[in-house]
Amino acid sequence: MRLAPLLIVLLSALPAAAAEPIRLGLLAFGTAQWEIETMRSHRLDDVHGIQVRPQELAGKDSAAVALLGGTVDAVVGDWLWVSRQRAMGHDLTFVPWVGMTGALLVPEASPVRTLADLAGRKLGVAGGPLDKSWLLLRALAARRHGMDLDRAVNKSYGAPPLLAQQLEAGRLDALLTFWPSAVPLEAKGFRRLLDVAAIPAELGLETPPPLIGWIFHSGWAASHRAEIEAFRRAEAETRTLMCAPGFDWTGLDRLTRANDARTREGYRAGFCAGMPGMADLDSARRLYALLAELGGEELVGPSPVLQPGTFW
């Protein structure tokens, strides 16, 4: 009996059983990397009682394979893809992470002032013909000017770095690209003609749902609800930290590849502007219908309507 107190002391000194890690599939140099790196370096996952284990993936196709194959628990993507996968029998679901982001850029001295001025000009489009920003831009051109932008411009699709080089070399008159790729171009003096985030409201979608978020299996979520909620709290605290005055963004230069204060501030501003709101299902259904009309089955798959359960 006299050994009992000593046994209690020894047992209390043992480390607690490690929580099952959340395996996150992250694209190399993607903006989610910035957040997860900050979360882990400040041990905010530990604070919230979870372990986050990032796994670097090569691209969107690799992320899809990893998630569907079960080698990661969650990846970053958009809810249109989730709805498409649900229509095909996969039990994926989505929680918001960032809103719609992207920009249409032109050289500072360009005579292009409106979308109508793009007619007959060379436009670079990052992400390909089914990129959501490109589809929304086409819808906006039709609304503003009765213009079929797809036919009115000479399009070049490609990766953001390649298109950025072509814009700088004068081989493109304008570039529609993702916001992280727009920041260094703006730092070099290129002018933002239009912000993609402003398009939905002009199309009658006053409360557009965040397009990008975390995607995971509903079955996995059912048995990891507490971990998901803890992760979301850790995420919110991480973003608050990163967007607070005085946070040192130079510590992320390895990931952002920023090499000057203006570019670094552009990344900070863009990241902090993308904080998600609540998902409005009615607005999501209307946006889905619009994009389905423009992108067709190639974009949304076999379902003409947003699938139930798309949003967690």
Rank of each mutant, 00 (worst) to 15 (best):
I8V: 15
V9K: 14
S12K: 08
E20L: 11
R23P: 05
A28G: 14
F29W: 13
G30D: 15
T31A: 08
A32S: 13
E35I: 14
I36A: 05
E37W: 15
E37H: 15
R43Q: 10
D45S: 12
V52C: 05
P54C: 06
Q55N: 05
D61C: 03
S62M: 13
S62Q: 14
V76H: 09
L80C: 12
S83T: 09
R86W: 09
G89L: 12
H90F: 11
T93W: 05
V95T: 08
T101P: 14
L104M: 07
L105T: 00
P107W: 04
S110G: 14
R113F: 07
K122F: 11
L123H: 01
G124R: 04
V125E: 03
A126D: 01
L130S: 07
D131T: 05
A139N: 02
A142R: 02
M147L: 15
R151G: 05
V153L: 10
V153M: 10
K155V: 12
P160E: 00
P160C: 01
A164R: 09
L167S: 01
L167M: 01
G170H: 02
G170P: 03
A174F: 00
A174L: 01
L175D: 05
L176I: 06
L176R: 08
T177V: 09
F178N: 15
W179Y: 05
W179P: 02
S181H: 12
R192G: 00
V196L: 07
L203H: 06
G204P: 00
L205R: 03
L211S: 14
H217N: 07
G219N: 06
A222M: 12
H224C: 08
H224W: 07
A230D: 15
F231A: 12
F231I: 09
E235V: 10
E237L: 07
T240G: 14
A244R: 15
A244D: 07
P245M: 08
G246F: 12
G246S: 12
T250F: 06
R254G: 15
L255G: 13
L255M: 13
R257D: 02
D260W: 13
A261Y: 12
R262E: 06
T263R: 02
T263L: 03
R264G: 01
G266I: 03
G266R: 04
A269C: 03
F271H: 04
P276H: 13
A279T: 14
L281I: 10
D282R: 10
S283W: 04
S283L: 06
S283I: 02
L287E: 12
L290I: 12
G295L: 14
E297T: 04
L299N: 07
P304H: 09
V305C: 09
T310W: 03
